[in-house]
């Protein structure tokens, strides 16, 4: 059962990767990265149950916090970039 869930997670990660490659805007890529972050957290949690290693959850916990901060970071950097140029792109 855990195997089925992790297979679904892998498929979803692959679909998110396709979106990250295709773009077309930076926001699509950030969105895809954010989604892959969520999926990775779940993947690590499920793998922890599969391998019966509950300390994997510490890693999942770090991921949740870190991937949130990096999403916010890219948005803030990009926002300051856009407001500096005063024009939009694509």
């Amino acid at each position: 059962m855990f195997i089925a869930v992790s297979a679904v997670l892998l498929v979803a990660i692959a679909l998110g990767l396709v979106r990250a490659f295709r773009g077309p805007t930076l926001y699509d890529r950030v969105m895809a990265a954010n989604m892959i972050g969520t999926l990775t957290v779940l993947m690590v949690a499920v793998l922890g149950f599969m391998a019966e290693r509950p300390e994997f959850l510490d890693i999942a916990l770090v991921y949740v916090l870190i991937s949130f901060v990096s999403t916010i970071a890219v948005l803030r950097v990009y926002a300051s970039r856009v407001s500096m140029q005063g024009s939009d792109r694509k």
Partner: peptide, 20 residues
Amino acid sequence: KLLLIFYFMIFTGPTAVHAL
């Protein structure tokens, strides 16, 4: 720990989407 992850996710997910 799972509840903590759940709590963080419930907050970070919508916030990230909102910021995006």
